[in-house]
Write a protein that binds this DNA or RNA. Structure first.
Lengths: 203, 203, 203, 203
DNA sequence: CATGAATGAGACTTCATTCAT
DNA sequence: TATGAATGAAGTCTCATTCAT
């Protein structure tokens, strides 16, 4: 049974995720990807025009899902904290589902200011803008304070999430499910209510 | 008048900052650094044993200052929010003073999970630990809530700060002083009191 | 209605002429030929054993016609200048009829001393020898001077013709019919009677 | 005793001539040139930015000498046939002095319509134009017939010369000095006075 | 006959590092 | 201390050819 073109592409993409995560984009060779995928060297170039395009593809696939998640949270009509919680949850679940892919995206793209980050800057900013929009609406509704700009709030929120993932990425061992779930709660808690304490609990 | 050995080293380091910031560590060549510094190619290797060592030196110089700032904040005896504000202020001021150096450190080291970030992992974690210690004490004093782990809080705080800097790094234009100052306030405000609102306003 | 095997071969050969002329033999890919012919990649290898064989075939087809034309001129019994004029005319008409094919043959074969020119050297020399034979007979008949060797004369004649074609080949625009006809006359005129002037005008 | 930069460049250029002549530009590898020159692979790229540039340099060096020879012939004030003889002589002597270089220039540049010939088209045409200018003046002076355009005459003359060299290039053995000298005479004789015979000899 | 995916050897070029002067 | 020529390993990408369907 032969693989279809789509399956072959996926086979190579999946192998690339593992190789990029393990060795880093710059350090790995295209031959590593081919070997990991179990295909001939040249076949990689049959499906992708360059090593760059493989990473671009991986990023765009996942980032579009991210943008969709943000859009969905925005459209859900739920309270802003719940919307932010949904976004943080989506990102953490993305990590739980495929930590290697998230490692690649964060390390090689969203934080690579001179290479892929620059290339995909507009797409990346779309995500920040989506989060900022949620914040802005909550401010207009009087739910969020107005003395923190929506753009700043979005950066702080997203930065906190990404840093938590980065912490996991730097660890050698797998992250316990409880820690993943705990992180979801703590991110939203921290960003929405702050380290000082919860408003709801006040009297 | 000939430059002293120390001055020559500094001359090369400063040139490296500009080149790394402009082109990225992997993309630039050692000859680019030499050219930017106005010295001969081989002289770079007289003062540094490798290209890596240049970046290592730049990182360690600055990161030690960062650790010192954290230690100083920790030892200041001020309230935890003020201590965190001091740290955020230190980082933002570092960016104001030398945005290229901060760009290099963030883009090429603290976020480079497969290369320099791995090399300097212990040092980087020292910073997180220092922040976490501040949080932990505040929790013990009942100033900070206890349902967010100090380690997590440190990640969130540092991640928010670094993401704000990353936003500036990705911009092509210089950041206005007012924005820098505003960021200092908003970081601490957001992390300590949350987006929902200030406790001080409650009664 | 399906194409016959012969038609398919021709279809591929004709496409190859256009591609070789446009991009050059070394620069084009077999896939370019297949695409130009509108057939599948692998089909080229069903009809030809290699890329080389395609060019070999194109050359031999045309060069055999050239040898036939020379032989026919030789056998015509007309005066040597008329025989040379017939050969020059044949070559120029070949260009008029299919400039791309002549470009390919000249650029990729007769002038490719290290590759195809070496392969087809014997065939190419047959043409020079045929022209030389005409000259030799004219010398024996006292019509042509004897202090220019027939081999040299053949080279000069053929070289002049090929250079004229090369001039056209290098031009981007089509050659006017009048220029083609003028060239026929001038080639023979120049080689037979020289630039100094026509014998007929002498007394 | 170390070689100067100029000597090293020359060493590589000379090696390239031998390799290009032996194997052809497309067939040889840069490593062949380095090996032939007895230098490290990378040094070739220290002196030349690409394989192409090596050939460009070789061509331009020689072609500029050719243009100078044509200009000098043109300015000599001698009769047109003597001027053409001087040019033919220069080219033949160039071949005698360095047959490999002339092989490379002819095979890889002046006849390479899709690659280097196209690149250097303007320079190549300068030579034809220089020869045409000599013819045109001779026509104006009534020395050359006017019913052959100067441009055509230049092509025929240059083509005859280049074809004679091509004949030598295709041979495996060295060309006898007598043949070289004979060629000089016969080229001019043929182009100026034609195969039919010399005007001067008429009565 | 026809298709186009699969193979893998090979070439150019880059550039960190060394070293002779 | 200073120079920049010299080294050569390594990597990306190309593309002729094969082959399973």
């Amino acid at each position: 049974m032969t693989a279809t073109a789509t399956e072959r592409r996926r086979q190579i993409l999946d192998a690339a995720v593992r190789v990029f995560a393990r060795q880093g984009f710059h350090t790995c060779r295209v031959s590593d990807i081919a070997e990991e995928a179990g295909v001939a060297y040249g076949l990689v170039y049959h499906y992708f025009s360059s090593k760059d395009e493989i990473l671009d593809t991986l990023f765009l696939e996942r980032w579009d899902a991210m943008l969709a998640a943000i859009a969905q949270a925005d459209a859900s009509g739920r309270p802003a904290p719940a919307q932010l919680a949904a976004i943080a949850g989506f990102i953490v679940d993305s990590y739980r589902h495929d930590p290697e892919l998230m490692k690649v995206i964060i390390v090689e793209v969203t934080r690579a200011a001179n290479t892929f980050g620059r290339t995909h800057l507009a797409r990346i900013r779309d995500a920040y803008a989506g989060i900022a929009a949620i914040v802005a609406r909550a401010q207009a509704d009087g739910v969020f304070r107005a003395d923190v700009t929506p753009e700043f709030a979005a950066q702080a929120f997203y930065g906190a999430v990404e840093q938590v993932l980065t912490g996991w990425i730097f660890e050698s061992t797998a992250v316990a499910p409880a820690e993943l779930e705990g992180a979801k709660r703590m991110i939203t808690e921290t960003i929405c209510n702050g380290l000082v304490g919860r408003r709801a609990g006040d009297r």
